[in-house]
């Protein structure tokens, strides 16, 4: 039988799917139906998708109410308890890097993302992280990965990634 926590989560997924379906249907109302010769216009597929998703979410709610989602992998690998602190570090790295990429350039923003994400992953593994040494090694590793990537893409493949300077090196 489903424990309370899993039931809550699965209900949330089903309701989320339903809300998505309703939102898509609401938007579909305003898409013109002008079909020309085809009989189906640009609003046809949106309707198919939103109605189908609505049906799916109905079935999901039925499954939750009758014992939970069918044929789930056992505890789908890993801990049952999420390690939110690590996730917060990783998110901060990704979002911070994204926000700063146009200002501080590709190399530094990727290093920032690397250092924060690595911090989260180290915490998750339960490493002891005293002092400046882990920070230092992560900064160096991050630079050693992102700088060559920047050079290869910028110089050989002519993919313009933003730099801190105009030199093409940083």
């Amino acid at each position: 039988m489903l424990d309370d926590r899993s039931r809550r989560y699965q209900t949330a997924i089903a309701v989320g799917t339903m809300l998505l379906a309703l939102a898509m249907g609401y938007v579909a109302l305003s898409i013109p139906s002008d079909a020309g010769y085809a009989g189906v216009g640009p609003n046809f597929l949106p309707w198919v998708v939103s109605v189908s998703l609505l049906l799916c979410s109905g079935f999901m709610i039925y499954e939750v109410r009758t014992g939970g989602f069918r044929e789930m992998e056992e505890a789908s690998s890993g801990d049952a308890h999420p390690f939110w602190l690590g996730f917060a570090w990783m998110s901060a790295g990704m979002l911070g890097g994204a926000a700063l990429i146009d200002t501080i350039g590709f190399v530094l923003s990727c290093t920032l993302c690397f250092v924060f994400a690595a911090r989260g992953l180290r915490e998750a593994e339960g490493e002891s992280l005293r002092g400046w040494k882990p920070w230092f090694t992560d900064v160096i590793s991050g630079l050693l990965i992102s700088a060559p990537v920047y050079w290869v893409f910028g110089m050989f493949l002519a993919i313009k990634l933003p730099g801190l300077t105009q030199s093409g090196w940083l």
Partner: peptide, 10 residues
Amino acid sequence: AMHVVLFEGK
């Protein structure tokens, strides 16, 4: 990556 940090640390 998110799955690893959240659930697979140990």
